[in-house]
Simulated scan of single mutants.
Amino acid sequence: MAESDKPNWPPPLDHEYTLKEDEIAFFKQESGITDDQALKEHILKVQSDAYAIYPYPCIRRFAFATLKISRYPFYKDVLKLGKERPGAILLDIGCCFGNDSRKVIRDGFPKDQVIASDLRQGFWDLGHELFKSTPETFDVPFIAGDVFSDTLIAPAEPAYEPVTGANPPLKSLTSLNPLIHRISVIHASAFFHLFDEQQQFTIAQRLAGLLSPEPGSIIFGSHIGSAGEPSNRSNASGGISYAHSVDSWKELWDGKVFKKGSVKVDAFIHEMERKDRAPDREGKYIATLLVFCVTRL
């Protein structure tokens, strides 16, 4: 039985307001709402609207409002690429409201070199509501599409030789295909764990086809992983997704997706408290995040 067919689905929203100080400061800066209570009410309203579009757990438990991209140890490398590599493009895949797209721009990555994509246009539109912007005041291009659709990302082998010619204007794009072999940074957080093992492999292949062969180009992010052996798990839609271990994740990228030795894969498990998870043997409510960075050599 799919989750959507079960009684009491979807679960009720968690209205616990759990933003950190720097996240509150970021929301105030981006939205212009400086009153704490007004900001809280505004964010909770957008949460309810987003949950009606699709009840992802990250929306239910308030994770949608957190900043992910700037927490990673690889973030300094992302900002360095934006500042030092001419025309470096950053793709925020599975971007939801665009929190991380806005954060990386706020921290110095050139705005006209950022592009975002998600399955549902509605989440990006709610991002404008969340941050009190419009497509004109925050004109980062967004492309709605299914990562498994060839019209969004066609299958392409990774490039191992330099790519010539100028990058296309990002605002003119209706597909990511003109960016094959041209993207310097791909951010993918809370994304891979929505899919099964074969689907994750397919996504990895497609993202690898987008990545520039220039040394230092990276794919990074985090998702639910396994601190032990890789395993299947049920996902938010009642289907099966796959939790890679650190070792299996490294093997996937270095040798299967890319030629062996052509990338460096950094990965580690980060444990975090998640009260919506089942307790482990010690009675702790723990989720295991697999944090990773794949770097072209």
Score class of each variant (00 low, 15 high):
1 M>I: 13
3 E>G: 10
5 D>K: 15
7 P>E: 01
17 Y>W: 14
21 E>H: 11
21 E>Y: 02
21 E>L: 10
23 E>L: 12
23 E>R: 10
23 E>S: 13
25 A>W: 01
27 F>L: 12
36 D>E: 14
36 D>R: 12
37 Q>M: 08
39 L>N: 10
41 E>D: 15
42 H>G: 08
44 L>C: 05
44 L>A: 07
45 K>S: 14
46 V>N: 06
54 Y>W: 14
54 Y>D: 01
55 P>N: 02
55 P>W: 08
62 F>S: 13
62 F>H: 11
62 F>D: 05
64 F>T: 03
68 K>A: 14
68 K>L: 08
70 S>K: 13
71 R>C: 07
72 Y>A: 10
72 Y>N: 05
72 Y>T: 11
72 Y>I: 04
73 P>M: 03
74 F>W: 14
75 Y>M: 10
77 D>W: 03
80 K>Y: 08
82 G>V: 02
84 E>Q: 12
86 P>Q: 09
86 P>E: 11
87 G>E: 02
88 A>G: 07
89 I>V: 15
90 L>S: 03
90 L>F: 09
90 L>R: 06
91 L>K: 06
100 D>S: 03
106 R>V: 00
110 P>W: 10
111 K>T: 00
112 D>N: 14
115 I>F: 09
116 A>I: 06
117 S>Q: 10
118 D>Q: 10
118 D>G: 09
120 R>Y: 13
122 G>S: 08
123 F>A: 06
125 D>P: 08
128 H>W: 08
129 E>T: 15
131 F>P: 02
132 K>A: 07
138 F>K: 00
144 A>E: 03
145 G>E: 09
145 G>I: 14
146 D>G: 02
146 D>H: 02
150 D>M: 05
150 D>A: 14
152 L>M: 09
155 P>K: 02
155 P>L: 04
158 P>E: 03
158 P>K: 10
162 P>I: 03
166 A>N: 12
167 N>H: 06
168 P>K: 06
170 L>N: 01
173 L>F: 06
176 L>I: 08
176 L>G: 04
180 I>R: 13
185 V>T: 11
187 H>I: 06
188 A>M: 04
188 A>G: 07
191 F>T: 12
193 H>R: 12
195 F>Y: 12
195 F>R: 03
196 D>C: 07
198 Q>H: 06
199 Q>T: 11
200 Q>F: 07
201 F>S: 00
206 R>D: 10
209 G>C: 06
212 S>A: 12
214 E>P: 00
214 E>Y: 01
214 E>M: 09
217 S>G: 06
217 S>M: 04
218 I>S: 12
219 I>S: 01
220 F>V: 01
220 F>H: 13
221 G>P: 01
223 H>M: 13
224 I>Q: 07
225 G>E: 08
226 S>C: 11
226 S>W: 09
227 A>N: 12
228 G>M: 07
229 E>T: 13
230 P>C: 05
232 N>I: 07
232 N>C: 05
236 A>L: 02
239 G>T: 13
240 I>R: 09
241 S>L: 00
242 Y>G: 00
246 V>T: 13
250 K>H: 10
251 E>H: 14
251 E>N: 15
252 L>S: 01
255 G>N: 12
258 F>A: 11
265 V>W: 04
270 H>K: 15
272 M>D: 08
275 K>M: 14
280 D>M: 11
285 Y>I: 00
289 L>V: 01
293 C>E: 11
293 C>V: 13
293 C>F: 00
293 C>G: 11
294 V>Y: 05
